[in-house]
Amino acid sequence: MGLTEIYNQYEKYFKGNILPYIKCNNCNYKFYYPRDMCPECGSDNLSIEKSNGNGKIYSYTVSNKNIWAIIEMNEGFKFYANITNSGTVDINKRITITFINKNNKTLPYGEIQD
């Protein structure tokens, strides 16, 4: 799987409101930021998986009224995203993934579940 293939698949999944991640079929490491090899073991036996969209906030910061967070997904990988609702943000709060299109670009965001 080459990088172009991975990015194309990510874009397709984003448009279908699916959060993708990459699983290494050799060592089982899961990661979000695309490489054509596993950053843990170097294997190129990778597959793109679909996250169930459930996770929690690992850490967050509020700047210019935007919440920037590290989100830890149930599948065991972490990624950066903004949080869409601000009411009761805290570390370990449960979130679900939602998708927003800004400037012709669809990206995943976290939505806090109270």
Partner: peptide, 24 residues
Amino acid sequence: PYKSLLNGYDNINPVSDYALAAQR
């Protein structure tokens, strides 16, 4: 290498990065 997945969000790195560490 990850611009398309990092860019487009609102943050003010590197301040945000250290803020995440401070919050944790």
